[in-house]
Design a protein around this nucleic acid. Structure first.
Lengths: 205, 205
DNA sequence: ACTTATCGGAGCGTTCCGCTCCGTTCCCAT
DNA sequence: ATGGGAACGGAGCGGAACGCTCCGATAAGT
């Protein structure tokens, strides 16, 4: 794998494209123009459209990668000996690269088979992580794994008016403290179910 | 003030327009088409543009009203005898009508004199509310009024993929529990300052 | 030197949006 | 009863922006 030549440039371009697309889509939403991604990647439109035939295809690839990173984060969390620290690591990592910002937009495009598979693996690992923390008595008992997914999603959403360097971490710390057992206030209403959550992505295969 | 006649219809239309605009802008953002607001209000484009000469003017009026509602919510919170309950009431009320969803978008248009005035009153009252709760020992001591504003903003942001009826309230309850004294984890980084916050709206007059 | 894969970006067709303009409706004063 | 005028709804205009294509330029491989 050389670092020179046209093929090497193609590989570099692909990486830069994915990075730029992640940045642009998570901060500006799926409506962001494709040209903005190309420009952010320092790559021409032609190169982008040779690699990904449509905007949707690029986005699908991006979602899969984001979920794979979520899987890795969950595995890293489970590798942590302390259940609470593991859960915090997982949440902080996912929010750190705004993984949740892609999830809601995923409902506006068709969900590929690969996306379903990866999503299933990610949710299963997250469930294990949450159950372990709860059974260790570190996590309040009335919160579900889906609550935490939605929490991450909420915190992944960017502030349109520019970001303060530490504000997000401060808020996330507050929320994580609120997750610790025992909960001071009982959580209201029915917890959201898995069927509802998956319904946002279209019908399951 | 009659309920019949053309003038009465004009008044009703104005009210419906403001309600619809609030709903559409807070859920779809400032990019939502004006026609969507007119349709949601059950009003023709002509009537909308006679009342508000531009889209921006409508949005400015909307922001002012939202902040006035924020002032009222803060006053209601201060009227509550228990400092903690008062703070919770304030936060829940503001998040309830997604007041924070307008704040970041306000930076994309020019801020009127009236908006500055109302904003100043709102932040001053919020500061009082927060200080009272902290001095009563109910609120963790390392959190600032601005942190709470940003928290409300974060929770005001709509989920593009449809909303679960109770999910938001559950997450908000968790966050509020995290705000109670004593904080389990120290908040990281410098708290955001007022100058940064106001800078998002353009330069102060 | 010639072939050929890859590059960047101008341009095409289309969609969408803010706003205007105008024919219609209906209150109300005479 | 009737004419004037204020308020109504919505089709349509001009222009901006977007997804995607096409092509001349560039440089690696032989």
């Amino acid at each position: 794998m050389s670092t020179r030549g046209r093929q090497a440039e193609a590989r570099r371009n692909d990486l830069r494209l994915l990075r730029a697309a992640h940045e642009v889509f998570t901060t500006q939403g799926f409506d962001a123009p494709v040209s903005a991604i190309a420009k952010a990647a320092g790559v021409g439109m032609g190169s982008l459209y040779r690699r990904y035939r449509t905007k949707e295809e690029l986005f699908q690839r991006l979602c899969t990668i984001a979920m794979e990173r979520g899987v890795e984060a969950a595995e890293a969390g489970l590798a942590e000996p302390d259940p609470w620290d593991g859960l915090c690591l997982y949440v902080r990592t996912c929010v750190g690269y705004r993984a949740g910002a892609l999830a809601p937009v995923a409902g506006t495009i068709t969900t590929t088979e690969e996306m379903w598979r990866t999503a299933r693996r990610a949710t299963e690992l997250a469930e294990r992580l949450v159950t372990r923390a709860r059974e260790a008595g570190a996590l309040r008992s009335d919160v579900t794994a889906l609550d935490i997914s939605l929490l991450m999603e909420q915190f992944s959403r960017p502030a349109p008016g520019g970001e303060h360097p530490h504000a997000k971490e401060r808020l996330l710390t507050i929320a994580l403290d609120g997750l610790r057992a025992p909960g001071a206030t009982e959580l209201p209403g029915e917890p959201p179910g898995m069927d509802w959550y998956e319904g946002r992505w279209g019908s399951a295969p």
